[in-house]
Simulated assay, not measured.
Amino acid sequence: MNGENGVRFLLIPLNNFNMLPFGGFLDKLRFSADEADNSQQRYCSWKISSHTKGLVVSSSGIPINVELELCEVQLGNFDYVVFFGSRTAIESQQQAAYYRSFIRTVAAKRIPIVSIDNACFTLAELGLLNRHQVVVHWRHHSEFKATYPKVVVRDEQLYHFDRKLISCTGGSAAIDLAVVILQNHVGQTRAEKGLADMLVDENRSMQHRLKSSEQGLYRNRHMDRAASLMQENLEQTITVEQVAALIGISRRQLDRLFQQKLGVSARNYWQELRLQHVYWRLTHSGHDLARLADEVGVRDISYLCKIFKKRFGITPGQCRRDSIA
């Protein structure tokens, strides 16, 4: 156990942070911090900070009040600094400037930094993740890989430990990560305390594969695995043949499965995932089409425009204009 109040956490929610990972992580600390359900900070403790005092508003519009400004933080009082990212990648990137000096000081003091949800974009924007391995929420895989090629993205993991850097994909995985961190300081029993109260069955391992993902609807382990690999490799760093080989079947068998279940070939299914990604990015970011084409491995922008219009009935430009109208 660390210090007078056990293991100590500094929690930093960025503007427009997602409430689920923040609340899940914090509530897990609360349950492990004391006997019964008294919410006293005995075995672990926490403070919430930001670059300014006052209200930090979550993506759901619910604010939390911050009374500790970064300039007032005594880093010697904390064992972990935990960042909770904004709802969108671009918001997380834009806030990097507020934390540049602070994060460099934290890194220099070798205090472990925890990146949850899109906070990975904040840290990567500052160059802190270069030559590190991280996990990224599946929806942002291609965007992150294209933006920060010096960072290694670990696929199919909920969280990852790399030296003094810990990353988490977000959502309820923040609870799983909190348990693992706490185990190293207060033991497994206390780390898992309160999971039943939170209606969590068990702590998931970092390699846990989500049964609730949309790919899981196929109820076929080969298709589920193939669809997962395709989702994580929208930039086509691997081929359909390699996908089939990775799951232990032939390309012909893989196509037969997709035809039977969905009426399309594996290649056409992969293209649909890429086009859906471009559509989502056009409506949720300001990046140009060249950048989005790179994210899905299309080198010819005119070809991307052609297949996009064929699929959605509008051009990429019209799609973006409609989204901001």
Results as ranks from 00 to 15, higher is better:
R291T: 14
Y98K: 10
A196D: 15
C305K: 11
A293M: 05
I238G: 01
R131Q: 14
V136D: 04
K261D: 14
V278T: 08
P63W: 10
L55M: 15
N5D: 09
N77E: 14
Y99E: 00
K28W: 08
H137T: 06
R225S: 13
F121E: 01
L282I: 09
Y303I: 06
P13F: 05
C168V: 05
L292W: 09
G24F: 03
R299K: 13
E72Y: 05
F84S: 00
T189V: 15
L14P: 00
F17W: 02
Y218K: 13
T105Y: 04
C168N: 07
N203I: 15
H277C: 10
F312K: 04
P316V: 06
G54H: 03
C305A: 09
H222P: 04
V153R: 02
G216D: 08
D197T: 12
N220L: 07
S142E: 10
E235F: 09
G317M: 08
D224W: 11
S213R: 11
A266M: 05
N184W: 11
A173N: 03
D155R: 14
V200P: 04
N233Y: 05
V135Q: 05
S59C: 13
K306H: 11
R311L: 05
K28Q: 14
C120Y: 08
C120I: 13
N5Y: 10
R281F: 11
R104L: 12
K28P: 08
F78L: 05
I238N: 01
D201I: 14
G170A: 08
I307D: 00
S172L: 15
G54L: 06
I314E: 15
I238P: 01
T105G: 07
